[in-house]
Amino acid sequence: MKRFRVSVQTEDFDVGEALKWLRQGLPEIGALACFVGTVRDINEGQAVRAMTLEHYPGMTERSLEEIIQQAASRFDIVSAMIIHRVGPLNPEDQIVLAAATSAHRQQAFLACEFLMDYLKTEAPFWKKEDTPAGAQWVAARDSDDSAKSRWNED
């Protein structure tokens, strides 16, 4: 891997700038896969008016770097990036960007999914939703654990 970056930030991010940074000056790249997660206005059937994301400063950044290193050891990727926002967010806001590049599409697609599956279960972030019933911490989903475990089958 020739280039990687992680960022945990309160401010919004520009997807176009992020994708440009991943590719610029690396002509061996032929594929770029990018995932952007956004705030929904409904979760588990309940309206979500806003949310707040908490993290563990220091550990979170290190965890994201380790996830990228693991992806680089498993997939033939040229560059990778994870941006994750923290603090107060509203429906439609961007929360997370995970992206990877490679010579051909398969490795970039796989690495991008791997980044998100590991981020969902290993990176210390916690969501608290503001709903009509009051503010509540989001419960972890079993489906996220099974999404991660599929990478251990081979």
Partner: peptide
Amino acid sequence: VAFFPPVTGG
């Protein structure tokens, strides 16, 4: 040492 509930980012 930190203790926390399962993570819910992303």
